[in-house]
Design a protein around this nucleic acid. Structure first.
Lengths: 209, 209
DNA sequence: CGTCTATTTGAATGTACTCAAAAGCGGTGG
DNA sequence: CCACCGCTTTTGAGTACATTCAAATAGACG
């Protein structure tokens, strides 16, 4: 899998970053006291990544939850035949993490890379544990977040099995209209579970209508 | 979709039921005080269902979390072409719920039925809310449960897109060896996202090896 | 412009589906 | 106890959806 900038950049740029976005996403689900906000934001590690940078690499043990403040990330799985399968695109407001690697301390089978220059927050697993021990309201927040994520995952499973590729593409366009603007089609094809060639044929067919 | 007993049984049988199993599943993840155990079990509604009974029906708004104490349930989705797609088999120790219907108060697109005579616990949504408000330890429990469930869901998405039907069948056999003993093949085919005819052909091919 | 990658096109192929029908299997009633 | 019924599973032929491979075209970037 190649993106224009394909070097692995291990020297992330740490900068001051606005926490309004992430806090507003959280307070959509739970109410925080000033103290809770303060403590939470103190745990976040702001990182600037450039297009093509790896945020996580398969084979390593994941130690961070990641929140996208701006830009766009892509998480993908490389199968034994060296084919990549995009699992998720994460735009502003989304969280991403390999929960299996994170909870079982096993090396990850997923990689996460920046599809565009992005501002992200890293929340180390051990810090999250401190956070929820101290303020159970965050336990609730993550419970709700995982709960919502499960709904989305379940819908994707249903679709994978009951929709044709063309229907999945239509659904994708409706649900993420902004993504198609700047995500290369081959990654969208991968996300839909089809080859770039076949996506191209679907697109032509739809243009002709 | 037909099971031997295909009547909708709205008169569930309420009985005394052992709460040891469900408590041990919970205390695998969190530690509970006697008071917390007591309060939690007081919220559970034990129900006995017979093979073929509906536990939840699509079109209705879901109001319960369901825990399987013994037996086996199956949750499936009926698509616009009236084809059923099995989403999950739930055996002893599993939880099941349509989180979308539950959280958004919308009518469910899933149905859940008993594949065998089963003992289940119902936990009404409003009771769960009381529970987590009063004892945040349960917030943690459900956070961990959803987190683990997400791992499984993600794996299933990866498999749907990168495995052939035969590979998915092999994985299923490894992961749920007990299920194949008594679940009709057509439901297993549905779970795997293939037709019963094709599963039959896969099985013959594997027998010949 | 030249190079590199992304996208499109077309032909041949493969995986899985549809439809129709036969075979297997468990229960029920005469 | 056997015959019949309803449902599940198997089989086979024809078909559709999606892939592979090879090559042409289009776009982005230096």
């Amino acid at each position: 899998m190649h993106i224009s900038r394909n070097s692995f950049n291990s020297t992330f740029i740490f900068v001051a970053m606005d926490t309004k976005g992430i806090l507003s996403h959280i307070t959509r689900h739970v109410t925080l006291t000033p103290e809770e906000r303060e403590f939470f934001t103190s745990l976040l590690i702001p990182v600037n990544v450039k297009q093509g940078d790896f945020v996580e690499q398969s084979g390593e043990v994941t130690t961070n939850f990641i929140h996208v403040n701006s830009g766009c990330l892509m998480t993908y799985f490389t199968d034994p035949s060296a084919n990549d399968h995009v699992i998720q695109f994460s735009t502003a407001g989304w969280w991403t993490a390999d929960l299996h690697s994170l909870t079982q301390n096993q090396s990850s089978i997923y990689s996460t890379r920046a599809l565009a220059d992005s501002e992200i927050f890293m929340l180390p697993k051990i810090r999250l544990e401190e956070l929820v021990d101290r303020y159970p309201i965050f336990e609730r927040f993550f419970r709700i977040m995982f709960q919502n994520s499960l709904v989305t995952h379940q819908q994707r499973i249903v679709q994978a099995f009951s929709f044709t590729a063309e229907q999945r593409y239509e659904y994708f366009q409706q649900k993420y209209p902004q993504l198609e603007q700047f995500v290369p089609l081959k990654y969208i094809a991968s996300y839909l579970g089809i080859t770039p060639e076949f996506l191209s044929k679907i697109r032509r067919k739809r243009m002709e209508k």
